[in-house]
Design a protein around this nucleic acid. Sequence first.
DNA 1: CGATAATTGTTATGGATCATATCAAATATC
DNA 2: GATATTTGATATGATCCATAACAATTATCG
Lengths: 177, 177
Amino acid sequence: MTVSKPAEKSAEKASEATKGRKEAPEGQSQGLAEALQLGELSEQLGYVLKRAQLKVFENFLRCMASLQLTPAQFSVLLLVEKNPGRNQTEIASTLGILRPNFVALLDNLESRDLCARIRSTNDRRSHILVLTDKGKAVLTRAKKLVATKHESRLNELLGQANREALLGMLSKIANEF
Amino acid sequence: MTVSKPAEKSAEKASEATKGRKEAPEGQSQGLAEALQLGELSEQLGYVLKRAQLKVFENFLRCMASLQLTPAQFSVLLLVEKNPGRNQTEIASTLGILRPNFVALLDNLESRDLCARIRSTNDRRSHILVLTDKGKAVLTRAKKLVATKHESRLNELLGQANREALLGMLSKIANEF
DNA sequence: CGATAATTGTTATGGATCATATCAAATATC
DNA sequence: GATATTTGATATGATCCATAACAATTATCG
């Protein structure tokens, strides 16, 4: 059980209700729901972090809808492009994906002709990963979508300097916590 | 498939290997794996955000091991404490948890006598949620653990001012993105 | 060399999380 | 008072994450 997206339905009601709000006359108030107090929750880094992460992924998926790429798939394509000739174990473990779970992910990318497994001549156990031409083309388009629709919105929201500061702090947490 | 924790095994090897590294004499190099280049991945906010979130949750669970509280359970206790007398729908939706999934979570907390469902007299459909005495006591201890073991480490790592700035930016993303 | 150990990709499988449809009881609406 | 809505709950499926085990291949070491 983790944190998912919050509800907005009761918020609508609340906004209706809080207008003509009486000072809680006790009793059963016929009660249109009040907005709940988050209290210390809004100070919990884990809580806010998870919420933000869900929002970012959600937006990422919307931006990538035309290419049908999930964050994980995008990260694989990026990593394979940057490190061609590596095998599944290396790519997967760098991304923190367990090898068994990486198989289906790759099956998907390969079935869409974005990525290819090539038997290594050095070590015939391993599969070298490379992007296909289509894979490179799709990745190029994906990067553009991310830059123009996704990361740009973050720059609007936070400002360039803040966005970089945020990234730095998150990296620090990811690497040194 | 999302981002999980990265691997360190190949990193060990790489550190061994990169010492006496030859300038890639072509061919089959007998190859001890090199550290992979993350490239643009380390600039992707979603990627770094997810990594940081996993680390924070992981640390949270370690800090709470003695109380056996997950982040989600902790958030429920916090919210019920701050908003006593609310029903399941209100608490769940505020946390972004769907009602069906909230049932088992509550069953757990109730079976451990941390939280109680009380039939509302106003609306006999709904269950009012309250913390039990044990629930209050456990929550108090949990808060202390979080403050001393969890959030304090973040202050060490980032500094007080940065930690607050981080929280502010994440809240902004969570609410306005 | 040859026996044993380790690695690679894979399958099977279970757990945890998340989402939808549906239901009975209770309440609201008209 | 008939109909619609809400609440908590169950059932169920999808997705993600983790472990064990296997065949093929390679590495290790006596």
